[in-house]
Write a protein that binds this DNA or RNA. Structure first.
Length: 698
RNA sequence: GCGCCCUUAGCUCAGUUGGAUAGAGCGUCUGGCUACGAACCAGAAGGUCGGGAGUUCGAAUCUCUCAGGGCGCACCA
């Protein structure tokens, strides 16, 4: 039985029904309820704030723009804490305790809350009706509340297709993929794009390696692209080419020739470049697929060039006065724009921008730079360019999902990409200024709304600890040894390759699984080890906040204990085992908890101080969607990782203290099982958002 | 020189809008497996939140300043 309480605040009473369509009305009421009267954690918080706001208006004629609501340090103090009496003390010229008292006694009943109480020097703590929140949670009530409309585009990975992916790329892809899952969990429609710079210098460098250092023919190269880890071959070759450039300045002439030929297209060098970059791209997709990371569309720079995206953008930028032609100084003959972050001088005539503050968009030789191409690409993303890519299917994932790629002339039938309401670009913080310049270009063109919905999802790089670098066999200077981290360098071939790391993690997990589960087949053990390895890696990349540089070390990344993915996976396995040993199916039980546990049982089992340890689990479980909203609003997936760990930790303590299957009191046993079911469900849910699956045993 | 970021326990990191006694994990030490599997749990030690000043009833959090570290600031991408 569901516990549905319908309550309208007096001033929110909807107008009487125009008995035209009962169904439409009921739909509207449901929507209304979901928005304001949901029994869930975030709704309770919002409702509490609303009541306080009303009370202040009513009693003191005060409007507070923001009612701060926080969480009491311990659960026995309640679920929400309001420190607002301290703020009001000065305004009302009364001691905070007195004000808090007035609010507590005057505010009246708040739906879903048991009571408010005065605490400390003037805190107001609110206690929710535990049984009701628990019943809603048990029934898994999920209002589809206020989903913003419009499609979202998340761009992530964007690895140069000239060498193997490394740990830094993994951080990018895992952050991006998790953010996609967060958005989808919140009900948003999301397109995942991976921008491929297949005509840039980095690709050119590898081509130089194949053609000029190794003197390979096209057919030899074709043969090589078919070898299993062709991207590794390129990794080493790229490092050699970088060295070769350093040997003789003359060598970089070749680089320019090759780059020019690739950009031009329709020649032997361009064909070879396409062969190589496409082969490396496939490898990247395979690597990321090992971590369950997929893409919908791969826009390539070659099409941005060949479909003349820039020409369309150039016209707009000139007409819009965003770009202007420089007649003198070091940027003479270039089309430039104001660099983002440089302030306009107070009084100037026209568009004068000092040389320092100029960003060259079109070079004096007429060619366009990367920022220019990026502006064109972003106009396309928002559907503002008036041009579109051609599309063809490129890669089919084992699950049947197709990933599309750009072409000049594509298939007639294809999904509609671009033309979105909101975009997120997962790009490391070093490109902040370039990203902001693109945003300013949009704003300058009058697309303020689009500029406001353009988010540079910025994160710090992954570096290596000096110890890790030494383990990899790199010679370190004394200066480097003293650093806390050393930046990876593709040019030097210095870094940890993604596939190597995944292999190492799987091997390490496999050893553990082998020794724990000799009864399983090798294939089963490998599957489990892969799940554990993926869980460990994805969790590792998500537990740090974006602004923190990750100093990578095998010891930390290979850990399966403590604050790790496997710790959370293990908690779920334990929860599952309780049901299995008890002869129950955990998912069936979970789907119908209400049948096993009455609201009355929940209320009784969760009341009183001795029930706090159980309530902590229910309360933490109730916070999932609240946390997910927060992750999206702050573009910070690390909060979810934290939440998962706390939930798993609470569960493990609970598990240890209460032998559930041995519980004699049947009612209590059902309640404990319900507790396990809810926590397990929320853990699985959160882990899924993090892209982590849970093995049957481990 | 200008801009952005960082500095919290031995190590690696949390600490959302300023709030109750600054928290985890790892490591160290002490305990706990007759199993709902110990990839776990319980406990201990460990802190001048880089230094200083200010705002505030109240600062790890806001402002200023100093020190140390990182990253940007190409007619590269």
């Amino acid at each position: 039985m569901h516990l549905v309480v319908i309550a309208f605040s007096s001033y929110e009473t909807p107008s009487p029904p125009s008995n035209r369509s009962l169904r439409a009305l009921s739909a509207r009421i449901t929507l209304f309820l979901n928005k304001l009267e949901g029994p869930l954690y975030r709704h309770l918080e919002r409702r509490l704030a609303q009541h306080v706001r009303d009370f202040l208006r009513r009693t003191y004629q005060l409007e507070l723009p923001k009612i701060v609501i926080e969480q009491p340090p311990r659960v026995e103090l309640g679920e929400y804490a309001l420190p607002l009496a301290f703020d009001l003390a000065k305004k009302l010229r009364k001691p905070p305790r007195k004000i808090a008292e007035e609010i507590v006694s005057g505010i009246g009943p708040v739906e879903g809350f048991e009571k408010l109480e005065l605490a400390g020097a003037g805190y107001i703590n609110a206690r929710v009706e535990r049984g009701r929140l628990a019943a809603a949670l048990a029934a898994d009530e999920k209002p589809r509340a206020e989903v913003a409309s419009g499609k979202v585009l998340v761009e992530h990975s964007s690895i140069n297709p000239n060498k193997a992916a490394h740990v830094g790329h993994l951080r990018n892809a895992i952050l991006g993929d998790t953010f996609v899952r967060l958005l989808r969990y919140a009900g948003r429609e999301v397109d995942i794009q991976n921008y491929i710079d297949n005509t840039g210098v980095q690709v050119a460098d590898v081509i130089v390696g194949f053609l000029h250092l190794e003197k390979k023919s096209r057919s030899q190269i074709e043969e090589l692209t078919r070898q299993p880890r062709f991207d590794y071959y390129c990794w080493d070759l790229y490092a050699r080419v970088s060295q070769w450039y350093e040997q003789d300045k003359e060598n970089s002439k070749v680089r320019h020739q090759v780059l020019h030929a690739i950009e031009e297209g329709a020649n032997e060098t361009a064909v070879i470049a396409d062969l190589i970059s496409t082969a490396v791209l496939r490898r990247h997709l395979e690597t990321m697929d090992r971590l369950d990371i997929e893409y919908d569309f791969l826009p390539r720079e070659s099409e941005i060039l060949h479909l003349h995206f820039w020409d369309a953008a150039f016209t707009k930028l000139k007409d819009g006065g965003v770009l202007f032609f420089e007649n003198e100084g070091k940027n003479k003959g270039c089309w430039v724009m104001r660099r983002a972050g440089t302030s306009k001088p107070e009084t100037t005539e026209g568009t004068e921008v000092t040389e320092e503050d100029q960003k060259v968009i079109v070079r004096s030789n007429g060619t366009v730079g990367y920022v220019g191409k990026d502006i064109a690409y972003h106009l396309w993303k928002f559907g503002l360019l008036g041009k579109d890519f051609g599309y063809r299917k490129f890669y089919r994932y084992p699950n049947g999902h197709d990933c599309w790629i750009s072409t000049t002339v594509g298939a007639m039938e294809h999904p509609h990409f671009g033309d979105v309401a909101e975009i997120y670009n997962v790009i490391d913080t070093r490109q902040a200024e370039a990203q902001n310049t693109v945003i300013e270009a949009l704003r300058g063109l009058g697309y303020a709304q689009q500029a406001d919905h353009y988010t540079h999802f910025s994160y710090e790089m992954v570096a290596l600890t000096p110890r890790c670098a030494a383990e990899l066999g790199y010679e370190l200077s004394d200066e480097d040894k003293a650093r806390s981290f050393i930046e990876v360098s593709g040019r030097k071939g210095f870094g940890v390759k993604a596939d190597d790391l995944i292999d190492t993690l799987i091997a390490s997990a496999k050893e553990e699984v082998d020794s724990r589960h000799p009864e399983l087949s090798d294939a089963e053990r490998t599957t489990i080890a892969t799940q554990i390895a993926t869980g460990a890696l994805r969790y590792f990349m998500l537990r740090f906040t974006k602004s923190s540089v990750i100093a990578f070390d095998f010891k930390d990344a290979l850990s399966f204990e403590g604050e790790t993915g496997p710790y959370a996976q293990y908690a779920v396995v334990r929860a599952t085992n309780i049901f299995r040993k008890g002869g129950l199916d955990p998912d069936d039980f979970c789907r119908d908890i209400a049948r096993y546990v009455s609201p009355d049982n929940l209320t009784k089992s969760l009341s009183g101080a001795e029930a706090n340890e159980f309530w902590e689990l229910w309360l933490a479980s109730a916070k999932t969607s609240y946390i997910i909203d927060q992750c999206i609003a702050t573009t910070e997936p690390a909060y979810l990782a934290k939440h998962v760990f706390q939930l798993a930790q609470l569960f493990n303590t609970f598990y240890h203290r209460h032998p559930i299957l041995a519980e004699a009191d049947e009612k209590r046993k059902q309640f404990l099982l319900a507790t396990v079911a809810v926590v397990r469900r929320e853990l699985l849910r959160c882990l899924a958002v993090m892209g982590i699956t849970v093995p049957p045993v481990m």
